[in-house]
């Protein structure tokens, strides 16, 4: 047993590719499943949420305009970086969710594999979601999916890492940018994921990560006029209803919460939820 005192990490937010503290100066205590102190996490404010939306909007043009091949490689790079930090995430997930090391390792492995799975979708989703349309006239007519824009993502409360990855990756692989509110009680794996994203060629602002109270951060995001969609995975039924109501004000796309087994094959639902279909017509003739 070494006498060495360990160096603790100051957990910070991830906004616009930078690691700020909450502008409010607030933190809250994060504990493990047994109630032991783990860290102080930033208690983000409404202002932090608005700043994150600005960063996400700024990043949208470049990220949605990048080639699908490029986005796929960037996301694959995230998986490579995660693999290198596997032990760290296993230990954080074990603490956060009260899991044994082996069960936590299974969660982390599944999360890395899921990231790889989604990365491969970048240049395939248009081929399953698009179509050539045989219209009754001399027209070339093609439908293709495009990203919806800025997506607010309320990460699942229970699954602090596998669930988190399962909501971020499908939103951003298609070219959306995201403002993510972490699991309220278990934010540390998410805040560590930010460090991975920052070292994986993901442009700043593509994913922004906020820890804090879901019930405090979600309403300003749901009501924000420059947010195009919201994933309510981390909201309970009552909060979800009020957020969906607020989201109607600029007709955000809303993905309602449901019972999800995060270990199961995710299918394409989340991938397709934040896409718009664009149909282009052009006459044919000489």
């Amino acid at each position: 047993m070494s006498d060495r005192l360990s160096v603790l990490k100051t957990y910070k937010l991830y906004v616009g590719g930078k690691f700020p503290r909450s502008e409010s100066g607030r933190v809250y205590e994060v504990t493990d499943a047994k109630g032991n102190w783990l860290a102080n996490a930033p208690l983000s404010s409404r202002k932090d949420a608005r700043d994150a939306v600005v960063a996400a909007r700024k990043a949208f043009g470049g990220w949605s305009g990048a080639t699908a091949y490029n986005r796929g490689q960037v996301l694959y790079r995230v998986a490579e970086m995660l693999e290198g930090r596997r032990d760290q995430f296993v230990s954080e997930v074990a603490d956060a969710e009260g899991l044994s090391k082996s069960k936590a390792a299974a969660q982390v492995d599944a999360a890395i594999d899921r990231w790889v799975w989604y990365a491969g979708w970048s240049d395939k989703v248009a081929q399953i979601a698009g179509s050539a349309n045989p219209v009754a006239g001399p027209y070339f007519n093609l439908s293709a999916p495009e990203p919806t824009g800025v997506v607010a993502v309320l990460a699942p409360q229970e699954s602090s890492f596998l669930g988190l990855v399962s909501v971020i990756a499908p939103a951003v692989v298609t070219g959306n940018t995201a403002v993510v509110v972490t699991s309220e009680g278990a934010p540390l794996p998410a805040l560590s994921l930010a460090e991975v994203l920052a070292t994986s060629d993901v442009p700043g602002g593509v994913v922004n990560i906020l820890s804090g109270r879901t019930a405090e951060l979600a309403p300003p995001l749901a009501a924000h006029q420059d947010v195009n969609a919201i994933d309510l995975a981390g909201a309970d039924a009552e909060l979800a209803k009020s957020l969906e109501t607020a989201a109607a004000d600029n007709l955000k796309r809303v993905l309602r919460p449901g019972r999800v087994d995060w270990t199961a094959d995710p299918g394409t639902d989340r991938l397709l939820a934040f896409l718009e279909t664009k149909t282009v017509w052009h006459p044919m003739g000489v």
Partner: peptide, 12 residues
């Protein structure tokens, strides 16, 4: 493009 207000049941 180079047309307008075209509709078809096959076209989303």
């Amino acid at each position: 493009s180079n047309t307008f207000n075209k509709f078809d049941p096959a076209s989303p």
